[in-house]
Structure formats: structure tokens, C-alpha cells
Amino acid sequence: MPEMERAPLLEVKGLCKRFGGVHAVDDFNAVVNRNHLVGIIGPNGAGKTTILNLLSGVYPGNSGQIVFQGQDVAGKRSHQIGRQGMTRTFQNIRLFGDMSVLDNVKIAYSWQAKYGMLQAMLGLRGVSQTEREVEGRALHWLERVGLAEHRADMAGSLPYGLQRRVELARALAGEPKLLLLDEPAAGLNPAEVQEFIALVSGLFSELDLSIILIEHRMEVVMRLCHWIYVQDFGRTIGQGTPEQIRRDPVVIKAYLGEEFE
């Protein structure tokens, strides 16, 4: 399954990150092909979020390569990586709480909107035209995640489950090739989890999109992912298809426990 004709969308080689003396990520290697859904699992403190932070340029790694669409993006800043087609959500939801839901999603288009400060100041015609386009595209994503009627609400005033969906819409509005989801089902009730699984698999089948998913709920990972990396203390202790992972004795011992046998 890894060997395909086209070059992979993302190839991570020897990625390392230390915080003080702690190896948060130690020699991480991974391949994400186009239109694939990859999961990263592991116990708390395994370095999963650190991997997403390194990929999205929140901070630089100590060594290693991150080849995204044929370009090494290691060491690039977040906004550069975002513009290249890699967007993400956060484990603890980072919405712009003081802004409306619609404006939150519009933020994804700021860097693409084709007008400068001077044009904005003078309110030239191109500005309102671009703004209408942006609004249309942002609304499209809100409709897709089922939040159109909340467009004018303050993002910070929405219930938790809806905030997760706003964040997803915002990340999708960046029109990414690779979407990083950091525990997107955390805090959702069982019904919401089912809706979420349906939403992600729906989006995945509609869009030309790859996803890296970090999740504690095995149900979500096992049902959605094509390939799974298992991390423990910064190291990859196993990888494979959900079926292989389920049977891997190392993984079971370190993480999954008896129930998945």
C-alpha cells in the first residue's frame, strides 16, 4: 500500500523535537498519500500533538525533513505552511471567540483575497466584490458542516460541539490538501461522535483531501483511518492498517489493552 506511482503528499523523515532533555518526538517517519486518512494514536504524553505542531510550523523541529507536495517545509512559519495547503484544528479549540461564526470562517480567505490595505481604505469596487465572493465561499463551508443558521452568532457563545464544527469549517475553508485534526471528537457525546464520523467520511469522499487524525476514541480511529501510527514516549512503536494494529502485541501491551483483543 505505501508504494504508489505518484509521489506521496507528505513524507516525514527523521523528525525530532526535544523540550529540555525530553525527547517529545524521536525520529518520526511517516508517509501520507493523496486521499488517505492517517491516524496517530498513543497514550498521553506520547508526542502526538507535538507532531502536528511540527507539521504545521507552530514551532520548528530539532532535525528532520517534512516534505509536503515535493517541498521541504521544515522550519517554515505557520502562515507559509497554511498557504501551501495544510490546515488544522486544535485539541482545545482555538476559535476567535469575539467574532461571528461566519467571520471565523472568512479568516481562512484573508491571505487569498486580492486587495491591499490602500484599496481597502479607499473602499474600491474590487473590495466589496471580493468580500462577496469570500462570504459566499465561507457560507458554503458553514452549510456543509450544518452551521448556516449560526452564522451570525459569536463563536465563543456556541456550545462545545458546535464550536468543534466551526473550527472544522474554518480549517476546510483553507481548502487544504492535508487536514490535521487534533482530537476532533474530544468532549463530544456518543450521538455527536456518530455525526462526526459521518461528517468526516462524507467530506473525505467529496473532497480531494488527505487527513491526519489524532484521536483517543478507538472507535473513531478504527472506523475512519486507512493507516495508523502508534506513538509511545516519542517513538513509533507500531504502524499498519486498523486490522494489523488491533492484533499487534506490542501495541496492545503499550496502549490498547485487553479489550481490543
Binding site: G57, G82, T87, R94, K106, S110
Partner: peptide, 29 residues
């Protein structure tokens, strides 16, 4: 007023609320 209701106004608020999230969305803060 024009700046306030353009993308620049939104970006201002976004950066004020969460600079990291704004950066991830492609904004050069």
C-alpha cells in the same frame, strides 16, 4: 470604517484573540 469592514478588520480581531490560530490560517501576523 472601510478598513474595519474589510479583511483587515477581521484579521486584526483574529490576531488579537488568537495569534497562533490566525497564523495557521495563513495570516502573516
Amino acid at each position: 470604517r472601510n478598513v474595519r469592514y474589510s479583511k483587515f478588520g477581521r484579521d486584526c480581531l483574529a490576531i488579537r484573540t488568537d495569534e497562533l490560530a490566525a497564523e495557521v490560517m495563513g495570516i502573516n501576523a
